[in-house]
Design a protein around this nucleic acid. Structure first.
Length: 714
DNA sequence: TTCGGCACTTAGGACTATCATG
DNA sequence: CATGATAGTCCTAAGTGCCGAA
């Protein structure tokens, strides 16, 4: 992995270099993007990107740029629609009626002269609260020091939060998470009368490590399994019911248009899953009451009813805001908003604006780059730091780096908040970044920089400075953005990320060839571009514990196929094969792959036998269930034993093979030719699996997910 | 100039539906 | 036809950046 990563980094660096060279004029933006907005957002976006590149070419023609953009965009949207339509043909007609009006609103063509007013009328039905807590059945208990205990439902609910996530080892095994959880749990225990054993005797819960949540975990697991196992018809029915119940909340009326609402559900109580070394991770996130929720709605609209016996905190009619409801969460005091979905006009417009801004940057980027190049030598330390920071943001797609409250948040940084220890200087001009960025994702990169930048960083790290000190001690994001805004209204640090990502995506797409590729291949190519941008933007995911496991499993599968291949070949030997034929295959043909040794084979054979056994048992149970359902008599255990003999046979066969080193041909009418075909098929499967394994390994730490918001409601 | 309040975007991971395939 | 892999959705944490008051 480390290696993998380096490769990625190298590639990114290389990419950057190429870019630089290519675009002499636009000097470089490079990286980033991906994240930002992601790639995702869609085809419309993609199209936009392409566009921007076209009109990039004639940078000069700025005057009509706006028009062009507006003219093109709808095209892009139409294209997106068309491509969508291509797949799910069926729906189209039925949906149309419904969608027509929405389609009619061409938000991308609406230029608002005053975009501080977000709406004139707004109607909606408020939020959906999570269901109340359902106490555990009497036989499911939290166990303390071996003793099953009873809790007040309130405390039990909290225990349940922990129990239900027992398989999330990342959290559950984190000592801070445990400590925070335990602290809150104990507090609640105290308030609710503590824990009692089955005789009603009080049990003092003193040590986290003595708590055993497995009963709770198993209970919830079983519950979810049962849910999953519902018959298809029932599932469908349940879904229809939920859909009907949710329907009123799904949409709102925004200036008289029907618009989709995003997160209309109030966040349920749970344990706070702060990322990285968040000091508060594991604390109890409390149930949100109506009394905490502010509703924002049109003055003349009907205010949604709060749940019986409750009140809203406040009703607002703020048409300068886009949110429909809002509350503050109890752990960090963060604001939570209910807003429209990404497919809504308001979000689309703002997205559009963002990309327009990035396109606008193109017109100024040369001047900005010239300036910071000069300012790298500025007399004034503040100016020099600022120029250096802009350089880093531009070249390496760093985020702005606002200040954080180190007491209450994970310690992560961006450009302006880089600390002494996050940068290592290696003469003559290599800089090694190593820090945790947003979401505590590690940013590691070794890059070569402009000699003056190297010099500057050295100065910024000079003497009295030590680990823990800011590199840019004369700079913060506000100053930086103020400076950037002097080039172009609205220009801020984050625009560079959008710009670089879009620029890169656009270039990669233009470089694609393969007009004769199949749709699938095209998708793959598109995804490849997407991935490159993600890499550039340091869009990573943490390699899950499951990964190594999955890889091993794949490896095992491949070995299994190889073993089967070997068996097939040896079956040939048992058939009539002329000496000549044998010889023409060569001795190697029949040799066992060196990855397979006897120990592995023994184990593998055992696994195969066991697998078969399981299958038989399962089938037996299923058949019996069916019998019961149909009122037929159940089969006896004896029948099962009978059926299991097949597995015993297999084991026996393997034993014999091991001893005699010969493999009896399987299947009637088997011939050498048929075996050869089978071998070929296996070879193919092995090849695809190897490819898949490679792909998986290569992708393990690249996050592509952010990318696909589809551009249309359904 | 700093600080907290606020609104909005960006992002990874859990969860679910769908697809491939053996 | 089940089963596991993959794609897509949901959820919500963690950023950015603006504003006004102290």
């Amino acid at each position: 992995m480390a290696k993998e990563k380096k490769d990625i980094e190298k590639e990114a660096a290389k990419e950057a270099k190429e870019l630089r060279a290519k675009e002499a004029k636009a000097k470089k933006v490079k990286k980033e993007e991906s994240d930002d907005e992601p790639l995702v957002k869609s085809k419309a976006k993609k199209a936009k990107k392409e566009e921007s590149s076209d009109d990039d070419v004639p940078i000069a023609r700025k005057v009509p740029a706006k028009k062009v953009a507006n003219g093109k965009t709808p095209k892009a949207v139409a294209a997106a629609k068309a491509s969508k339509a291509a797949k799910p043909l069926k729906k189209e007609s039925s949906e149309d009626a419904d969608e027509e009006e929405e389609e009619e609103y061409r938000w991308w063509e609406q230029q608002k002269d005053d975009d501080t007013i977000k709406w004139n009328t707004l109607e909606h039905n408020g939020v959906v609260f999570p269901p109340p807590y359902e106490p555990l059945p009497a036989n499911v208990k939290l166990v303390y020091n071996g003793v099953p205990i009873s809790l007040h439902p309130k405390a039990e609910e909290i225990a349940g939060f922990f129990g239900i996530m027992l398989n999330s080892t990342l959290n559950v095994e984190n000592p801070v998470f445990q400590k925070n959880f335990f602290g809150d749990f104990r507090e609640d225990l105290e308030e609710t009368g503590g824990a009692k054993d089955k005789n009603g005797k009080k049990v003092d819960i003193k040590e986290f490590s003595k708590l055993d949540f497995t009963q709770i975990f198993d209970y919830y697991q079983a519950k979810s399994a049962a849910r999953k196992a519902r018959p298809a018809a029932e599932k469908k029915e349940d879904k229809a019911k939920v859909d009907t119940e949710m329907a009123p909340y799904q949409y709102c009326m925004w200036d008289g248009r029907k618009e989709k609402v995003g997160n209309f559900r109030v966040e349920p109580p749970s344990l706070f899953r702060g990322r990285g070394e968040h000091p508060k991770t594991g604390r109890v996130k409390k149930r949100v009451m109506p009394e905490q929720i502010t509703i924002n709605i049109g003055e003349n609209a009907k205010v949604p009813e709060p749940p019986a016996g409750h009140q809203w905190k406040e009703i607002k009619h703020d048409n300068k805001a886009t949110w429909l409801a809002m509350w503050q969460e109890n752990i960090n005091g963060n604001y939570k908003y209910v807003m429209l979905a990404a497919t809504s006009a308001i979000k689309g417009q703002s997205d559009y604006k963002k990309f327009e801004k990035a396109r606008e940057l193109k017109k100024h980027i040369d001047r900005i780059r010239d300036d910071y190049q000069k300012d790298l030598k500025a007399e004034l330390m503040a100016d020099r730091q600022r120029a250096t920071a802009v350089y880093l943001i531009d070249k390496f797609a760093l985020r702005a780096g606002n200040e954080k409250d180190s007491e209450n948040e994970a310690e992560t940084v961006g450009c302006c908040s880089l600390k002494y220890e996050h940068i290592t200087l290696r003469p003559p001009n290599t800089v090694i970044f190593d820090f945790l960025g947003k979401d505590s994702i590690r940013f590691y990169d070794e890059v070569t920089v402009d000699p003056q930048v190297f010099k500057n960083l050295k100065i910024f790290k000079k003497d009295p400075k030590k680990a823990g000190d800011d590199i840019f001690d004369r700079l913060n994001t506000t100053q930086l953005n103020k400076h950037l805004a002097s080039y172009m209204p609205g220009l801020t640090a984050k625009v560079f990320r959008t710009y670089n990502a879009s620029f890169t995506m656009s270039r990669l797409l233009m470089e694609l060839k393969g007009s004769n590729a199949t749709i699938q291949e095209k998708i793959k190519l598109y995804n490849d571009c997407n991935r490159q941008v993600a890499i550039l933007c340091n869009h990573k995911r943490t390699v899950g514990a499951g990964h190594a496991n999955a890889m091993e499993k794949m490896g095992d599968k491949i070995k299994g196929l190889k073993y089967q291949k070997w068996r097939l070949k040896h079956m040939m030997l048992q058939l009539d094969m002329t000496a000549k034929e044998k010889k023409s295959k060569g001795g190697d043909y029949f040799r066992l792959d060196e990855e397979l040794d006897q120990a592995w084979i023994d184990k593998h054979q055992e696994d195969l036998v066991e697998e078969q056994r399981q299958k038989i048992v399962k089938k037996f149970q299923k058949d019996n269930e069916k019998n019961v359902a149909e009122g037929v008599k159940e089969m006896k255990q004896k029948e099962l034993q009978e059926r299991l003999k097949v597995a015993d046979e297999l084991a026996k066969k393997f034993r014999q093979e091991n001893k005699s080193k010969k493999v009896e041909p399987e299947g009637k009418g088997i011939t050498v030719e048929k075996l050869e075909t089978q071998v070929e098929k296996l070879d193919q499967r092995i090849a695809t699996m190897l490819l898949q394994a490679e792909d998986r390994e290569g992708n393990k730490e690249v996050a592509l997910g952010t990318s696909k918001i589809v551009s249309r409601p359904s």
